[in-house]
Design a protein around this nucleic acid. Sequence first.
RNA 1: GGAGAGGUGGCUGAGCGGCUGAAAGCACCGGUUUGCUAAACCGGCGUACUGGUAUAAAGCCGGUACCGGGGGUUCGAAUCCCCCCCUCUCCGCCA
Length: 401
Amino acid sequence: MLDIKYIRDHVDLIKQAATDKHVRCDVDRLVVVDADRRRVRQELDALRTKSREGGETIGQLRNPKSKLRKEAAEAGRSDADIETEVDGLQSELNKIKTLIKPLEEQDRQVVEEFDTLMWTIPQPPAPEVPVGKDDTENVEIRRVGTVPQFNFELKDHVDLGERLGILDIERGVKLSGSRNYTLKGAGALMYQAVLRLAMDRMIDRGFTPMHVPVLVREEVMYGTGYFPTGRDQAYLCERDEMSLVGTAEVPLTAFHSGEILSEDDLPIKMVAVSPCFRREAGAAGKDTRGLYRIHLFDKVEQVIICKNDEETSKQFHEEIVANAEGLLQELELPYRVVNVCTGDLGQGQVQKFDIETWIHATVMAKRIRHRGSTNFRRDDSSCVTKGRIARRGIVIRSTTR
RNA sequence: GGAGAGGUGGCUGAGCGGCUGAAAGCACCGGUUUGCUAAACCGGCGUACUGGUAUAAAGCCGGUACCGGGGGUUCGAAUCCCCCCCUCUCCGCCA
């Protein structure tokens, strides 16, 4: 969520961002509601001031030791006279109270609409982000590695995995429905190995390894911007008012929420491997063969909390991309990095680089346009900068020295 | 699931119907003093929203809300009442 002050001052920029990102939001309405909200608040404040001041006067008149009471007595006023004044004041304040009630209700309504609108406002993309309608218009930045050539027809990971007895999709589906699978033997081990390798490399680069909850409270989902928009994509455990996260980014970024950090402690670099749960709602029919768009996978997530400064965060963003690339290079997997265009950028995202990995020759043309993944590593490797300008969901403050 | 304890500012911790946005201490910031550091002393020190004013910024003056959350009583609530949430301890149950 952006700061309303920023939105007020940059209406056109926000509108442009909405257009570019294909986000539907009514900025004009927001501006109106914002004005309403302030107007109502002002009226309310004025009444509350009166009410408070009157109340204080009553308190003092009632108190025989107060200055006001003594002054009244010195002015020759009788106790009964003062009592009458107090009674008058009380009924007057009661009247004010009846005015305050409906205004408070109005305030609630306005604020509710205001908040609803605020959640839809997109974060403007960074200037380097290409404008485009969807993932087909992402811009390739670089290609690394050579795609191997074979003089025979390649089998895909499903054929290979099942033939080797390390992948069993059918039984996964039996247990949990479509988009589920099982790994066994070397498959299960390789899965662990790749995750561990990624963890080790990030730890080498100064990240603190973390283990975090993947079932989190509602407010955490809101705080990280996944709710309300992403609600459809999350598995909800409604009885307990908790949700399964779709990425460790959620608990990691919320880790310091509400805290005041010393700037001396920044940057904070964290890495975690965690299960990721995704309903893939609305994806029916897409990517149905193979381990794509599955409901559960593990992912290694890098999160850096740094100074709230564009230049700094950009620099760390690049570092994260480089780290992810390093891993692919080590695994000798050819890949390309794309600058994700506005239309493919999330509502709260400022800039994102996807790293798309070569899977195998026969599907490359198609796959490379999607988020890449290897057979066993279901990591979409997108690197995102979030929260540049006054991100209000999670408030992490820092002190400056 | 049962029983109890508790949730107040960055922290510790008072307050238990008006003079409390909140004592005191610690921490922090500015200053004085001082071989250096420390100590001592003086001053400052919450957040959000909002009005005014000013600006390159900062700021300054004012208002409102906030003592876990929501509702109620009252002219007036951190303080009284109700509901909820959270944390902790003990017991029970248990993949």
